[in-house]
Write a protein that binds this DNA or RNA. Structure first.
Length: 462
DNA sequence: GCATGATCATGC
DNA sequence: GCATGATCATGC
């Protein structure tokens, strides 16, 4: 049967919407099943690519040929399939980032955003969201949403400006021959995520003599995709507040934050409260955090739309009067039995351990206060966007694996201490007296990974 | 002064 | 009620 030729977006969309609340199996004739079943066994390591191929063939009636061009040549649409998982409160969240084409380090340095191969290929996306289940054949994944997304028209101007700025930041790093230092958390909405069958694969970067770099692809961050799912597809009220003044603002996230804090840097806590004309209920311990929320949103809300989309975690830190940082930075408590099953990086699926994912994808916004000697007050010194540097990832991996080893041995007295690594350690993190079960069926207090105070301190200096 | 263990306050 | 971010307490 000849390929179907699609002439308009509407025709493609009509064809796509037939999959809603159904799975692929319903589209495949019985006679083709034996071959597909045997392919499924053969391709078990690359199931996602095969899912896309099957959709093109059986849902859209297009034979798989060159994938370099747009999937629907005439309509100019790029087809994407991406997994969802169930979430208790939000119904569905994205299981992964949305991955685009590979970054060609040697070619991309000659591009501009307007002429970029990224924009050329991906400005019009047809995204099929399916509900993933690890026990099911991919033929039985149920499709939940079909979304035709025109990047330049459907995404707000602010967000597309930010995406452009992200693209430019990634390319600038590649131009500096620092492709080996790229991290998904370098940028806000568009990221450069790793993409390789195994972690040994490397690519030559621009300039020829540079250090080999991991292959990476452009991706829309999982956090950004989640926002699209909640707002555009589920039409949930996200209950977040934008930090932008109005829709015509052309600033990046960093510029908006800069503007918000400008009038407050150098003031004491007391002066800031006066300026905000606001008094918190009690002299509570998280007063600094409440002040920061107030400065950013005006209302004190702590759910900021742009921070959720970009996976930015806000941390208020207090330097000592002498400029030292006393407190380390904590991560969520881990479960011992779960932790020893995690792989730092799963070569087959590309999945990361929780700690690795936090370091690779999370951006921090540190709001830096300094204690004033002899008083209880503080001064607002400034702020710093930061993400875990790629060159320290190996050390984080070492601490992670050390923790796993000691847990497997049941040696809870010897979990990695501050003195064992310049970067990270393991320490208790729990409310009083709360214990959980270990792999050895004993009870242990809950613990988590921390980034050493001394390690963070040097990034907070201006 | 620092490392390590322990706990508080808040919001979901 | 619990997880999370923030901070305190203790001992060397």
């Amino acid at each position: 049967m000849a390929d179907t030729i699609y002439k308009t977006e509407a025709e493609v969309l009509d064809a796509a919407e037939r999959v809603l609340e159904r799975s692929l199996r319903a589209f495949i004739p019985e006679s083709d099943m034996p071959e597909i079943e045997s392919n499924l066994i053969k391709y078990s390591n690359n199931r996602k690519g095969y899912l896309g191929d099957l959709i093109e063939q059986y849902v859209f009636n297009i034979k798989n040929n060159s994938r370099a061009e747009s999937d629907f040549k005439i309509a100019g649409i790029e087809l994407k399939t991406t997994p969802l998982k169930v979430h208790a409160k939000k119904r569905f969240v994205s299981k992964e980032r949305l991955v685009f084409s590979m970054i060609n380090y040697e070619e991309i340095i000659h591009e501009t955003w307007e002429t970029s191969s990224f924009l050329e290929k991906n400005k019009l996306l047809l995204i099929l969201f399916y509900l993933y289940s690890k026990d099911e054949s991919l033929l039985d994944y149920e499709f939940k949403f079909v979304y035709l997304l025109n990047l330049l028209e459907d995404i707000s101007e602010q967000d597309i400006d930010q995406i452009r700025s992200d693209w430019e930041a990634i390319v600038a790093k590649i131009r500096r021959k620092e492709a080996h230092l790229l991290s998904e958390a370098d940028t806000y909405y568009l990221g450069a995520c790793t993409k390789a069958k195994n972690s040994q694969v490397t690519r030559t970067q621009a300039g020829g003599l540079g250090i080999p770099a991991k292959p990476r692809a452009f991706s829309l961050k999982q956090s950004y995709l989640n926002y699209i799912i909640q707002k555009d597809l589920l039409e949930n009220d996200t209950q977040t507040e934008s930090i932008y003044k109005d829709e015509s603002s052309e600033q990046t996230i960093e510029e908006v934050v800069q503007d918000k804090f400008k009038g407050y840097i150098g003031l004491t806590g007391e002066q800031i409260l006066k300026k905000l004309k606001w008094q918190p209920d009690a002299n509570s311990k998280n007063q600094k955090r409440l002040i920061v929320n107030r400065i950013l949103t005006g209302t004190g809300s702590n759910k900021i739309e742009e921070f959720e989309k970009a996976n930015i975690t806000l941390r208020a830190v207090a330097l000592e009067p002498n400029g030292k940082l006393r407190e380390s930075i904590s991560f969520p408590a881990f479960d011992y039995k779960d932790l020893i099953t995690q792989e730092w990086y799963d070569e087959e699926t590309g999945e990361m351990s929780a700690f690795h994912a936090q370091l690779e994808t999370q951006k921090f916004l540190f709001i830096i206060f300094q204690k004033i000697a002899g008083t209880k007050d503080v001064v607002l010194r400034g702020f710093k966007f930061w993400n875990f540097p790629a060159q320290d990832m190996g050390e984080a991996e070492r601490v992670f694996k050390l923790a796993q080893e000691r847990i497997r041995e049941g040696d809870y007295k010897k979990l990695p201490k501050t003195s064992e690594s310049p970067v990270a350690h393991v320490r208790p993190h729990d409310v009083k007296g709360k214990s959980i079960e270990t792999p050895q069926h004993t009870q242990e207090k809950r613990r988590c990974f921390w980034l050493n105070a001394k390690y963070i301190e040097r990034f907070l200096k201006d």
